[in-house]
């Protein structure tokens, strides 16, 4: 059975496939994904929060029609939670059972207790052992939240696609999974890990692209509203803020405004719903009121200029 036929053969096909899953990918991003798939390398995606890094893996999994296995990173994430763990309760029970039946042979028991039956498979092992035909997409999310120790054992998995369980031996993956690693860059990921990956920096989208994203994801939104929202968010990103609103926030906001039956932006409604876009008190206070009006005006001016250019 040929499995490679499911991987889009060209960049254009990949872009189209992702588009069908409602993801608007840059040409650059599409090329990176295409290369990662073809060269069988992990893809490291960096970018600010809310630019759609995690979404790439999800969309990729559904457009390749395969499973998504997700590992959320956090400090202290260890082998027990990332790769495998023994089922201790069952092991203890088994010992009691063997004792009761009188058939406790130490050597055999040790072999039995550390067999696959008592193994709890965590995401990384599941990704390697996958035997459902097509290799899954493995998403290692927010790797910057994990500590250096975790990065250390990711190295073995990412370069050879194998893990070693002392009691059982080495488990090697027949067809390596497509690995997507994301990082918010709250710290620098170690160079050794980066060198094993292809790299793409996802930037905030420009007006055209963001507008496309909004209309693709929220087709029910009035056209004028989507346009104004996008232009306003673009304007908001130029303001000096601690935390800039990402695409995810734009989508949330548009959805909220649609739910509020808005057909266009209104300064007082913006003030009331700023909390969807900005998550720091200082940021909200610094733009609420007059700055919001100024930004809205600028956004509208840009909009009319764009309209004129188009018409």
């Amino acid at each position: 059975m040929k499995q490679t036929t499911t991987v889009p053969a060209t960049v254009d096909e990949l872009q189209q496939a992702m588009r069908e899953q409602l993801y608007v990918a840059d040409r650059g991003l599409a090329i990176s994904i295409h290369l990662a798939l073809s060269l069988k390398r992990p893809l490291l995606l960096e970018g600010e929060a809310g630019v759609g890094k995690t979404e790439v893996a999800k969309v990729l999994a559904s457009s390749l029609d395969t499973d998504l296995i997700r590992l959320q990173c956090y400090e202290g994430l260890d082998v027990n939670h990332a790769v495998y763990e023994w089922n201790y309760a069952r092991q203890l029970l088994e010992i009691r059972l063997l004792e009761a039946s009188g058939g406790l042979d130490r050597g055999a028991a040790a072999r039995d207790l550390f067999s696959e039956e008592f193994l709890i498979k965590r995401p990384l092992l599941r990704a390697l052992e996958h035997d459902g035909g097509r290799p899954p997409v493995l998403l290692i999310d927010e790797v910057d939240r994990a500590d250096e120790e975790f990065e250390g054992f990711l190295l073995e998995i990412l370069s050879d696609f194998q893990v070693t369980i002392p009691e059982m031996g080495t488990i090697r993956s027949e067809e390596p999974p497509f690995v997507v690693i994301t990082s918010n860059r709250t710290r620098e990921v170690h160079d050794a890990l980066k060198r094993r990956c292809l790299y793409y920096w996802i930037d905030y989208p420009d007006f055209q692209k963001e507008y496309q994203i909004v209309t693709t994801r929220i087709p029910g939104a009035p056209r004028k509203l989507s346009e104004e929202v996008t232009a306003f968010v673009q304007e908001l990103r130029t303001a000096e803020l601690y935390k800039v609103a990402g695409v995810a926030e734009t989508l949330d906001w548009t959805a909220a405004l649609v739910a509020l039956d808005q057909t266009e932006l209104d300064p007082s409604v913006i003030d009331d719903t700023l909390g969807i876009m900005l998550k720091y008190r200082e940021d909200i206070e610094s733009v609420r009121g007059e700055p919001v009006r100024a930004m809205l005006n600028r956004a509208r001016n840009r909009g009319t200029r764009r309209g004129r250019a188009r018409g």
């Binding site: 090329i31 990956c197 790299y199």
Partner: peptide, 23 residues
Amino acid sequence: RLVGVRRRSDFYHALRTVLVHRQ
């Protein structure tokens, strides 16, 4: 070889994704 060199932007992105790994 995979991406080809016909489009300059494709060429650029292909090289960038392989050769750059820090923002």
